[in-house]
């Protein structure tokens, strides 16, 4: 069998070119990384370091206390922390999937699935946080 010979140029046309995407995901991956650092620091400070003197094991009341004091601001911090963790983690997972498969259909399906998971948890977490904040004493 004679090897099919083409110019490098025409072979180059057979190279699969993926859609122009990824820039914003990459930017958000960086932004959410910084966000995680910031919001996690706030979260840890209020749930732990600010209450270092309190004796005994960690209780629900302690976890809830910042909500009682700062209400909406603290709830917003918690939700942003949730958002950053979800985005950063799920987009990381998407990257792993994209490294492993080049099947465009599977890639699209997984992206939609991860998006739904992310949205689901964001909404559910938001609902929980709203409940905590609105019932705060």
């Amino acid at each position: 069998m004679q090897r099919e010979v083409t110019s490098v140029t025409s072979r180059a046309q057979q190279v699969r070119v993926a859609p122009r995407a990824g820039t914003w995901l990459w930017i958000w991956q960086r932004l959410t990384a910084y966000g995680l650092l910031l919001f996690l620091a706030v979260h840890l400070y209020f749930t732990y370091f600010a209450q270092l003197g309190t004796p005994g094991a960690l209780t629900f009341a302690q976890v809830q206390r910042p909500f009682n004091v700062y209400t909406l601001a603290y709830a917003l911090n918690e939700w942003l922390l949730l958002f950053c963790a979800l985005f950063h983690g799920l987009n990381g997972l998407r990257n792993i999937i994209f490294d492993w498969t080049t099947h465009q259909g599977l890639r699209r399906a997984m992206t939609v699935l991860l998006l739904l998971v992310g949205l689901g948890f964001a909404v559910y977490g938001g609902w929980v946080l709203w409940t905590l904040a609105s019932t705060a004493a």
């Binding site: 070119v17 993926a18 859609p19 122009r20 990824g22 990257n95 994209f98």
Partner: peptide, 14 residues
């Protein structure tokens, strides 16, 4: 930049 800024391009680099 348009050629390399794709899912088969620079964004695959970890």
């Amino acid at each position: 930049l348009d050629i390399v800024g794709t899912e088969t391009g620079v964004w695959r680099c970890h």
